[in-house]
Design a protein around this nucleic acid. Sequence first.
DNA 1: TATTGTTATACTCTATAACTATA
DNA 2: TATAGTTATAGAGTATAACAATA
Lengths: 143, 143
Amino acid sequence: MTTPPAALARHTGFLLAWVAAESSDTYARAIGEAGFTPTQHGVLTLLDADGPQVQARLSERLDVFKPAMVGVVTALERAGWAQRRPHPTDGRAVEVHITDRGREALRDAYERAQAATDDVLGVLADDERDTLHALLAKVAAAR
Amino acid sequence: MTTPPAALARHTGFLLAWVAAESSDTYARAIGEAGFTPTQHGVLTLLDADGPQVQARLSERLDVFKPAMVGVVTALERAGWAQRRPHPTDGRAVEVHITDRGREALRDAYERAQAATDDVLGVLADDERDTLHALLAKVAAAR
DNA sequence: TATTGTTATACTCTATAACTATA
DNA sequence: TATAGTTATAGAGTATAACAATA
């Protein structure tokens, strides 16, 4: 698809979905070149930012079902980007840790993701882009 | 999920995807109550705005694969919202027309969709909402 | 009795291939 | 040779149920 049909572009909700789809596709392709799926990238970003976490918490924060998270963490472990370790106090739980190689891969993916976002939002001036970000943040914070 | 993780909300691309997902879910639920799937709603909106169209064109404009469009149009036909008619000049093609009942259903769905968008974007002031729309439109037009 | 991680399974959506009839 | 609509089918992604171990 090149550009959205005028009849649909009148609705902000449709525009939002359309632009997000373009953005998501571009982003997914970019981090895919770094070896990540979007969910894997999300998990690793959370581990990097907020430290080791239990799978159940990752599932909840990323809105990914628990059975799906199993495969995601296993994939990250096989790539050498994360490690499962027994939880210190809760014998049921598993703590997921990011590795040094995981942090490296994350930096690589970050640069690619930035380039992808620039590709989509590049038509906007810097201040327009800031405004868009602020508006979206306001909507997100209210949910 | 309640609100997006701070580590991810820094990226405009992620925010876009997150807000769009919220918006799409709310929108899909709203028009679902009117009996539509999002794609059915998109097809009928195009037929209403731009007149009868061949399936191949609908597929292209909505970025839906041709085999999927078959089922969508069949569903619209069964609901009495659209009709397939032989194309006047091209014997291979089928023209899809919206019916009066389809227009009625569309009006119903439109009100529900508006309410859904209001629910998501309601935190924004009117001028902020206009700004958001304009920025998204600018990005979409540039693709 | 509830929760964590897991396996198995079902279901929906998306995508490809291939066939027909027309062009 | 190419295109429109269709059928069949394969595949990815998503959701549910149920189980073992632990709380």
